[in-house]
Simulated assay, not measured.
Amino acid sequence: MDRAELGAFLRSRRARLQAADAGLAPGPRRQTPGLRRAEVALLAGISVDYYVRLEQGRGPRPSDQVLTALGRALRLTADEHAYLLRLARPAFAPPSGPVPANVLRLLDRLDDVPAMVINAGYDLVAWNRMLVALIGDPAGWSPRRRNRLRRLFDTGDKITGNRLELARLCVADLRAGGRYPADPVVRALVDELLDTSPEFARLWAAREVVVPRTLTKRTVHPVAGPLELDCEILAVPGHEHRLLVYTAAPGTPSAEGLKLLLTA
C-alpha cells in the first residue's frame, strides 16, 4: 500500500471540491480552497481522525467499503476510483517483454491506417508502414527519440497541433497505469522528466488520473496537409502493451490525406 501517494491523492481531490459541489452549505469564509477534512469525513461516514490519518499517510489499510465511500464523497471518476483502489490494493502489473506475436500479425494486417504498439513506459516498440509514412521511420531514431512521452516534452522537437492536450492526457494516463514507482523503467522516466521539464512537473503534481481510450491527434503533414486523426487505444490483455490505431472520418480532408500517404 502506497500510503504517501494515497494521502497526497486524497488531498488533491479534496482541494478541487467546493462545499456546494458536495451539497454542503458554504459556511464561514474559507482560508484554503476545497472541502475541509471534517466535511469529507462526514460525507464518507468515517471519523475525522481516521480521515486525517489517511491524508497524512499514517492510517491503516482502508476497507473496500471505506474506499467506496471516499470515492463518492470526493466525486471521483471511474478512473480515479480505480486508481484509489490500486493505491490501497496494489495489483499485479503485466511484466515487460516482447510484443506478442498475435499483435504483430494484427499490426501487419492494418495496411491502410497508421498503427503502432507502445509499452507501459511509452516506448514505441512496433509499427506499420503507414505509421512510417505519417511520422517517418522510427527504425532510424535513437531509443530515446522513440519514447513518445519524451517527444511530447522535448522543447527542441517540433510537434505541431494539439501537443499540450496530448501531453496532459498522456501524463494522466501514465499515473493511472499504477506502475509508478514500482516499475523501475517508468520511475526513471518520471524522474528524468521531473528534472528536465517544468511542464511535465506541473502536470505530474496535478495528479490527474485518466485512462484515455480515444484521442484526437492534429498535425500538419508535408504531403497530406492538415490532419485530424482519431486514435483508438487498445489494451493487450495480460500484457503491458497497447495498440494505437489512427483513423479519419470518411469523406473528410483527413481521410483523403491518409489515402495520399497510402500511395506515397
Rank of each mutant, 00 (worst) to 15 (best):
V171G: 08
P95N: 05
G257A: 01
P100E: 08
L10Q: 06
P98Y: 09
L87H: 08
G251P: 00
R146E: 10
L70M: 11
T32F: 04
T216W: 08
V220F: 00
N147M: 11
A25K: 06
V209W: 04
N162T: 12
D21G: 02
R168E: 15
L152G: 07
T155K: 06
L261F: 01
L131R: 11
R168P: 06
R150N: 08
R150S: 06
A15N: 12
Q65K: 10
D183F: 00
L229R: 03
L260V: 15
V186M: 10
H241D: 06
P94I: 05
L35V: 09
G140Q: 05
R13M: 03
P226A: 13
L106Q: 13
E39G: 11
R11Y: 07
A139H: 08
E55P: 00
D79K: 01
R16G: 08
R148A: 15
E199I: 02
A19C: 08
T155H: 10
R207V: 07
G23P: 00
R218T: 14
R145H: 12
D154N: 15
R148G: 11
A82I: 07
L260M: 02
V236R: 09
V48C: 07
L174V: 15
K259C: 03
G57L: 11
E256Q: 14
R16W: 07
L134R: 03
L110K: 03
L164Y: 07
W141T: 04
L234M: 15
F92P: 12
Q18W: 06
R53K: 13
P212K: 00
R242T: 14
V209G: 06
A235R: 14
Q18A: 15
E5C: 10
G251W: 00
G161M: 07
L227D: 05
F9N: 11
D111C: 09
M116P: 01
R75E: 09
L234D: 04
E228S: 05
V211Q: 14
V66I: 15
G97K: 14
P28T: 05
P98A: 15
G161A: 09
P100A: 12
R163C: 08
P184F: 01
A69D: 02
R218Q: 15
A93Y: 07
N162L: 02
P198C: 14
L87I: 08
T263F: 04
R61A: 00
L35K: 05
F200I: 03
N119K: 02
D108L: 06
G97C: 10
A205C: 07
A126P: 01
L166C: 10
L43V: 00
F153K: 11
R144P: 04
F9I: 11
P250E: 02
P114N: 01
V125R: 02
A4C: 08
V190S: 02
P181D: 04
V48W: 03
A73D: 10
A20C: 04
A73P: 09
G45E: 11
R151G: 13
N102A: 13
D183E: 03
R105T: 14
V209P: 01
L149E: 10
L174F: 14
R144T: 12
L85Y: 05
V113F: 02
A82H: 01
